[in-house]
Amino acid sequence: MTFTYEVIDHVQIAAPVGGEDKAREYYHEKLGFEEVEKPDLLKKNGGVWFQAGSVHIHIGLEDPFTPAEKAHPAIRVKDIGALKRHLDEVGVEYLADDRLPGADRFYAADPFGNRIEFLEWINE
Rank of each mutant, 00 (worst) to 15 (best):
A109E: 15
A74L: 04
Q12D: 03
Y94L: 03
G53T: 09
A103P: 04
V7Y: 11
I116Y: 01
A15T: 03
H72I: 02
K70P: 03
D21S: 13
R24H: 13
F112M: 13
T4E: 13
H86P: 06
L119T: 07
K38Q: 15
P64L: 02
F106Y: 11
L100K: 07
H72A: 01
L31I: 00
D104I: 08
H28E: 15
K44I: 10
L61K: 06
L41N: 06
A109H: 15
L119G: 07
R105H: 07
I8P: 06
D104K: 08
N123K: 04
E117G: 01
E25H: 06
F112E: 15
L61R: 06
G102V: 02
A52S: 14
G53C: 04
V92D: 07
V17G: 14
L83W: 05
I80L: 06
D88M: 11
K38G: 09
L95V: 09
G46V: 04
A14Y: 12
D9C: 04
E37P: 09
G91Q: 01
P16W: 15
H10K: 09
H86N: 10
P101D: 12
D97Y: 06
A71E: 11
E6M: 05
D88P: 11
L100A: 05
E25D: 15
Y27V: 09
K30A: 13
K30D: 12
D9F: 08
I13V: 15
E29W: 02
E6Q: 11
E20L: 13
V7F: 07
P101M: 07
A23E: 15
L119E: 04
P67Y: 00
A68V: 00
K70H: 00
F33E: 10
G46A: 14
E124C: 09
R115G: 12
A103G: 00
A74S: 06
H58Y: 05
E35Q: 13
E62A: 07
F50Y: 04
G60F: 00
E20I: 13
K30P: 13
W49M: 12
N45D: 09
G47Q: 10
A71M: 04
K84A: 08
E69Y: 00
V92F: 03
H86V: 07
G19M: 07
V90C: 08
A52E: 14
L95R: 06
L31Y: 03
D104V: 08
D21K: 13
A71D: 08
D98F: 01
G19Q: 03
S54E: 14
V36R: 11
A96L: 12
M1A: 09
D21R: 15
W49C: 13
R85W: 00
I75W: 01
L83N: 03
I13E: 10
E37Y: 00
